[in-house]
Amino acid sequence: MKKFLAVLCALIVLGTSARALEISAPSALLMEKETGTILFSKDEHAKLEPASVTKVMTLLLTMEAIDSGQLSYDTVITASAHACSMGGSQIWLKENEQMTVSDMLKAVCVVSANDCAVALAEQVAGSEEAFVEQMNLRARELGMNDTTFKNATGLPAAGHVTSAHDIALMSRELILNHPDIRQYTTIWMDTLRGGESQLVNTNKLIRFYDGATGLKTGSTDNALYCLSGTAERDGMELIAAIMKAPTSAQRFEDAKTLLGYGFSTYALKKIVPEEALPPVPVQLGTQATVQPVLGEGSALLLEKSKAAALAQSVSLAESAAAPVAAGDQLGTLTVTAGEEVVAEIPILAGETVPRITFGQMFFRLLRTAFLAG
């Protein structure tokens, strides 16, 4: 699958319009969510301070804990003295104040609350230090080779760095596999504590960019202005990672430039067979046929000029010899744009068909003879 995606990504050639994009930030990257294809990059591996964009990883680990059943949205967290001691952006938690996971997620996503980020970290891992170990482990699993986390918030700390490339990787993991995070990242204004605490999203894209879905801002004196901005149009979601932009306004302008380029240039096409795939006969199997299914890689990211007129052809094996394992390749669906082959998607066995045993074959022959008589 990884090889197939690599081939697919290689088919996408960035045009002169991508190279001509004017981005004020020294480091930036544009990625498509479904395929992970990089559509634009500028010094994307520079190791820089991410400020509160760090919290994308904090959110990811919290959502993974929720999905695993370790936490629920209704879990009540009691704020520790350590969590309440955080500086920077916060909702001013009081020691021993209680708040649900859901409300703390809202505070982190909307106003980048450092106190809530640490409270969530402590709930997930027992301490912020243990949580940071999990953050770095998860970063390595995701291939975030430019990243070292020192805390759960992004507050200034020596050696706490990541890159635009790695921000896109963890952002993709969050929005691809935990889409429920949108219930918080798309909030523009809301309240906590029964209306006593007012929240306004630090991500201006949510209000001012069509299709914006999130994700996280960050800024400190050294990091300057950072952003992971996500948006979806026509079934395609893009991630714009911006680091060290000179001003807050400019990071949003850079993100809009990248997102606008992606939406105007590319389209995501979900390929399905034009006709139902017929069963493939199985020789010496416990059943006569096996049902083929389309394999992974059926989501194609293409330049819009190519996506407008796609054709497909199916090549399917006349038969398969048992045993057949689910996932064995039975054929190929080829997608073309004009004379150009843009993808070859494997057609796989959708089920396992064991080889018939001698005893089963003997019984089958007896039954056939009996019915014939």
Rank of each mutant, 00 (worst) to 15 (best):
E344Q: 15
I345N: 03
A337T: 09
T352H: 09
D328F: 04
G350K: 06
P354I: 01
I347Q: 08
P346D: 06
I347M: 10
G331A: 05
D328T: 12
T336L: 05
V341A: 07
A349F: 00
E339T: 15
P354N: 04
T332G: 07
D328G: 12
P354K: 00
P346W: 03
L330I: 14
Q329R: 15
G350R: 07
R355T: 12
G350V: 11
T352R: 08
E351F: 00
G338W: 01
G350H: 05
T336R: 15
G327V: 00
E344M: 12
I345Q: 00
T332Q: 14
A326R: 14
V342L: 00
E340M: 09
P354Y: 01
V335F: 03
R355D: 09
Q329L: 07
G331K: 03
T334E: 10
A343K: 03
A349H: 03
I347L: 15
E339F: 09
T352P: 11
V341Q: 15
L348K: 07
E344Y: 07
L330M: 12
R355P: 10
T352C: 09
T336Y: 04
G331N: 02
E340Y: 07
L333V: 09
G350Y: 04
T352N: 07
E351H: 11
L333F: 09
R355G: 12
V335S: 05
A349Q: 00
T332P: 05
T332C: 10
V342H: 03
G338R: 01
T334H: 05
V341Y: 05
V335E: 05
V353C: 03
D328A: 13
D328W: 03
T336H: 13
I345G: 11
A326F: 11
T336Q: 14
Q329S: 14
Q329M: 13
L348M: 13
R355Y: 04
T332M: 10
T336N: 15
G331F: 04
